[in-house]
Amino acid sequence: MGDFLSENPLVLLIGASEVGFWVLLAAGLAARYLLRARRLSTLLLLLVPVLDVVLVSAALVDVAGGSPPDATHGLAAVYLGGTVAFGHSLIRWADARFAHRFAGGPPPPRPPRYGAAKVAYEWREWGKIVLAWGIALAVMLLTATVAGTGVPAPSDWSADPMWSWGARLVPVVLIWFVGWPLWTTLSPPRAPETTDVRG
C-alpha cells in the first residue's frame, strides 16, 4: 500500500482534498454559528473550491511533466466532477442542519415526497450526476490534450486507464435515470388521502 501511494501521489492528493473539504466545511460552519465570525466563515467556505483548483492543476502538471494519463488522473477527474456538481448541495445541507442545531434555525427542509414537486426534485438530482459526468469528461479531455495522447473512441474507453472512469459512470447515470426521474415521472407518488373525522 505504501509503495502504491508513493508511486501515485495524486491518490494522496485526492484523499487530502476529500478530507480538506469536510474540514473546511466544518470549520466554516463552526465559525459562522458558534463563533459568530461571519467573515472568517465566508473565507473558509470560499477555500473549498480552491481544493478543486489545486487538484486539477496537480493532475495537469503531472501529465505535462511526462507522466502518461492513467487511472489516477481519471479518478481525479471524476472526483472533481462530483465535488463541483454536488458540493454546493452538501454545503447547503450541512448549513441548514448546523443552523438548526446551534443557531435556533428552522428544521432542515425535507425533499418533496409527492406530486410534481417530487418529479422536479428527482430530475434536478439526476441532473447533478449528469453534470458531474460531463465535468469529469471535460477534465479528462483537458488532461489528454495537455499530455498529447488524444481521445479514444467511446467504444475503447473501457480499455483505457484514464477514460475507463468515464465508462464506469455510464451505468450509474443510466440506472439513476431509470430508477428515479423516469420512474417518478411515469408514476408520480401521490399524497395519502386524509379522512375528515370531524362530526
Rank of each mutant, 00 (worst) to 15 (best):
A132M: 06
L141S: 08
V19G: 09
S17G: 10
T185Q: 10
W183L: 15
R32K: 14
A30H: 09
R92Q: 14
M162L: 11
L34I: 09
G150D: 13
R190L: 15
L141A: 14
G166H: 03
E125L: 08
P188H: 12
W183F: 11
A132I: 04
K128I: 11
A59L: 04
T184Q: 08
R110D: 15
F177H: 09
L12H: 06
V170R: 12
V170M: 14
V130Y: 06
A138G: 13
V78C: 04
G104F: 02
T72P: 01
R190H: 13
I14V: 14
P161A: 13
A37T: 02
V53M: 14
A117M: 08
F21K: 01
V78Q: 00
D156G: 01
W176E: 12
A132S: 11
A120Q: 14
H73K: 13
I91N: 06
P154M: 05
F102N: 06
A120G: 14
A26K: 09
S57L: 12
A31C: 12
G74T: 02
D196Q: 08
W183H: 15
A117H: 11
V130W: 10
G166N: 01
G81K: 01
V130T: 08
P192I: 10
L45S: 03
G87Q: 05
G199Q: 04
I129T: 09
P69T: 04
R190C: 08
T184M: 05
F21R: 04
S187A: 15
P112I: 04
P171E: 14
W176F: 12
I14W: 00
G82S: 01
L13D: 09
Y121I: 05
P171S: 10
V178H: 07
V23G: 08
A138S: 12
Y121M: 11
E122N: 11
W133T: 07
L169R: 07
D52S: 11
P9I: 09
S17W: 01
M162S: 10
S89N: 14
G74L: 03
A71Q: 10
P152G: 05
P111V: 06
V48N: 01
G20N: 09
T72K: 08
V119R: 12
I91C: 07
L141H: 06
P161F: 08
